[in-house]
């Protein structure tokens, strides 16, 4: 199972930039098709919001690939271990 978790990380890393590419492409074609402030605001909001989320998705994939999800906390006693390990 851990191998699947790690290899799937590659998919998430690839999906992040692909999602952004699709979003930018659709935004530019829609703005070209229907130029106007409404269209620009609308797609501007989508890009602003989903761009950082896509970066988070890549980070998630990276963590998975590194094996950070091989073991998840099994009990509350493990939750407080976070303190000792800064990024």
């Amino acid at each position: 199972m851990n191998a699947i978790k790690r290899y799937a990380g590659l998919i998430w890393i690839i999906l992040g930039p692909l999602g952004i590419h699709y979003l930018l492409q659709t935004a530019s074609s829609e703005i070209a098709k229907k130029p106007g402030i409404d269209t620009q605001i609308q797609w501007g909001v989508f890009i602003t919001v989903f761009y950082p989320i896509a970066i988070g998705f890549i980070l998630f994939g990276l963590y998975a690939l590194e094996g950070n999800y091989d073991h998840l906390p099994e009990a509350s006693s493990e939750l407080d271990d976070y303190d000792a390990k800064p990024l």
Binding site: G56, F57, L59, F60, Y63, L72, Y82, D83, K85, L87
Partner: peptide, 18 residues
């Protein structure tokens, strides 16, 4: 900082989201 600056917690935030 403790929520999003520590990998052990940030990875759980990302997992909860995605």
């Amino acid at each position: 900082k403790e929520s999003f600056g520590h990998k052990a917690n940030l990875k759980m935030v990302l997992l909860a989201l995605f």
